[in-house]
Simulated scan of single mutants.
Amino acid sequence: MRKLSGDPDCKNGTCPTLWGTADGKDYVVQGYVINDPERLAQLDLPEGETAVMVPAAVLEEYFRAHR
């Protein structure tokens, strides 16, 4: 895994992050667990999947660097 982008306001190094796999075929998003039942119901996630919330700045930083 290689770090592609992180929360620019992160102070402790374990903040939401966008990771890329070594082969470049997949991304992994590290973020905050969504526990709100209403939000989870809106997503209708199938078994085996989960969702995390990340600050917009994490993805914006990545896309800005790759324009």
Rank of each mutant, 00 (worst) to 15 (best):
M53T: 11
L18F: 01
Y32E: 14
E49G: 01
E60V: 02
R64M: 04
R2C: 03
E61I: 05
D9N: 15
L4Y: 02
C15G: 13
T21F: 08
L4K: 08
E60S: 03
L59R: 06
Y62D: 02
Y32S: 14
D9Q: 11
E47F: 10
D26G: 01
R64F: 04
V29T: 02
N35L: 09
L40C: 08
D23N: 11
F63R: 09
L43C: 06
A41M: 09
K25V: 04
N35D: 11
D44I: 02
K25L: 14
A65V: 12
K3Q: 14
Y27C: 00
N35F: 04
H66A: 13
Y62F: 12
P55E: 07
A51G: 04
F63Q: 12
I34Y: 03
Q30C: 04
V33F: 06
M53V: 14
G31F: 02
W19Y: 13
N12G: 07
P8I: 04
W19G: 03
L4M: 12
V58I: 03
F63Y: 13
P37R: 03
N35V: 02
V29A: 06
F63V: 15
W19F: 14
P37T: 07
T21L: 09
P55D: 08
A22Q: 12
A41P: 04
V52A: 10
D26N: 05
A65Q: 15
G31E: 06
R39Y: 06
D36Y: 02
V58M: 05
W19M: 10
L40K: 08
A22E: 13
R2L: 12
D23T: 03
R67H: 15
V28G: 01
D7V: 04
R67L: 15
V58R: 00
M1P: 09
G20T: 13
R39L: 11
N35R: 13
V52S: 10
V54L: 14
N35W: 00
E60P: 00
G24H: 08
V29P: 00
D9F: 11
Y62W: 07
V28T: 04
Y27V: 06
N35K: 03
